[in-house]
């Protein structure tokens, strides 16, 4: 994966709480074997049954062209473990998601697909949502764990230190696990039945 360090991006807000991964990528689009799912990102909130866009949905507003920072309501990404959700987000162009909380499995899946999950406090969240309403630009500084809001205000965000290092250096988690093959063999041989 390409290293991720500092990047700027236009934002969009979907100010709804408990957005589940069934909305991000509906189950009927899980039947393929490709990761190119940007066209079905939020399929049923973005489009009518006949495929025509719903003009009021934030991603369809004229200012939302080319957005890469998603600001969402509380508890983003709950529900199904489908990695098809971050695949759709990434293919659509999303590189960071901001909320007050992001579900555990979805956080892991985002980190493995070059999307930065950014948890902000309840005081910062309304400002981020309002900025996303206007599609303003945020800056993400991953090495310093800093989000710069369009107002210029900077906040730091928590991120797993190991995942951060992998993303910043473009390292591969599977490569790390494989580097410990000897320790795994020793673990297995010390435990009969494993």
């Amino acid at each position: 994966m390409d290293p991720i360090t500092v990047f700027k991006g236009k934002s969009v807000s979907i100010p709804i709480a408990n957005i589940d991964t069934d909305q991000i990528t509906p189950a009927r689009y899980l039947k393929g074997t490709e990761k190119k799912l940007g066209s079905v990102f939020f399929r049923d909130w973005r489009f009518n049954a006949d495929g025509s866009p719903k003009p009021e949905f934030p991603l369809n507003r004229p200012g939302a062209q080319g957005v890469s920072i998603l600001v969402a309501g509380d508890n983003y990404g709950c529900g199904s473990s489908r990695e098809h959700a971050p695949w759709a987000m990434h293919d659509f162009g999303i590189r960071a998601v901001i909320s007050t909380s992001i579900a555990d499995i979805h956080t892991n899946n985002c980190l493995k697909n070059g999307i930065i999950p950014i948890v902000v406090d309840a005081a910062t969240h309304p400002e981020a949502l309002a900025a996303g309403e206007q599609n303003l630009e945020f800056e993400v500084d991953l090495p310093n764990r800093t989000l710069t809001l369009p107002s210029g205000r900077k906040v730091t965000f928590p991120i797993d230190a190991f995942a951060q290092r992998c993303l910043v250096q473009g390292l591969d988690e599977l490569g790390y696990l494989r580097s410990h093959a000897k320790a795994v063999e020793a673990y297995e041989s010390a435990r009969p039945g494993r």
Binding site: P86, I105, N108, N109, K112, F162, E173, Y176, H180, V184
Partner: peptide, 20 residues
Amino acid sequence: FGIGTSEVEMVLATQTLLQR
């Protein structure tokens, strides 16, 4: 616990996962 597809690949390849 449930995992994503990248993690499925890791378990297939190593029988381990990275977890906090």
